[in-house]
Write a protein that binds this DNA or RNA. Structure first.
Lengths: 135, 135
DNA sequence: CTATATGCAAATAGTTTGCACGGAT
DNA sequence: ATCCGTGCAAACTATTTGCATATAG
């Protein structure tokens, strides 16, 4: 779905500002507020900081965008996408998405605790393939 | 190890303020800055906010305390302890630690990506046993 | 005794809000 | 014409810092 339709389907007007933010997230995969601000100040210098805040908040509420938190890092934003875990390279800093089934672990937790597992948020500190081979 | 020895082993002076913060974390299991502030203002009313900030930062750097982030929640602090995952009840808000092996998943990720996995941070949204049975 | 920690106030950073204007339906 | 979104400035909240004093070791 295009970003325009995505916004419309949530009854949000497809303004150039919003589209610019969505494009930026698409490009970056994962971006902090600071990243977004920097990139946007080049592409669209008049887009104000409060508009970035407001729109990110709105789009997070509408679940078009999600906020991702990592230990010892700033918060990141990403377009909402298929469920995935995050692989964070401790050397180059790159954040990658990876799709993998996690139900074994959830099942085991349910069995052992008696809780009902609804969802999970998993991230892994890694040294990525590229950094490994660059040694 | 007592909190006094814990601090000393990191060459940090065992001041009443630091001990109070550690006791608070011990009691709560997991606490936000706000939680800590509130509790401390009763136990130790003269302990200043900047001291809380400074000491939490120092103790996080020394890895006596860790900072834990959850989606849609404030950041929490906890005493550094054995590796565990977090179970966050979406009904009552309680955060529980749970020890479970996660190497199967790490192994699988290594096999499929070629990355080297160093560590993981896993949290699960749950309805806890107590909330389930309270229905 | 000396180095480090504390408390307070001030400085800085991060985020939200009110309001008048502008653009889309 | 109306509603919603934007930009700007101001307000607010969160966090850090400088400095004089206090205190642990």
């Amino acid at each position: 779905m295009s970003h325009i339709d995505l916004l419309k389907s949530h009854k949000l007007k497809a303004t150039p500002q919003r589209l610019c933010i969505l494009d930026t997230l698409q490009e970056c995969g994962h971006a902090t507020l600071e990243d977004i601000q920097k990139i946007i100040s080049k592409k669209f210098p008049t887009l104000s900081l409060s508009t970035i805040y407001r729109n990110l908040n709105d789009m997070v509420s509408h679940e078009i965008v999600s906020e991702v938190k990592f230990a010892n890092k700033k918060d990141y934003f990403e377009l909402k996408k298929e469920k995935h875990v995050h692989l964070v390279c401790q050397q180059c800093g790159k954040i990658e998405d990876f799709k993998i089934r996690t139900d074994d672990l959830s099942k085991k937790i349910e069995e052992l605790t008696g809780d009902k597992v609804l969802d999970d948020t998993l991230s892994f500190d890694v040294i990525c393939k590229d950094c490994l081979s660059a040694k």
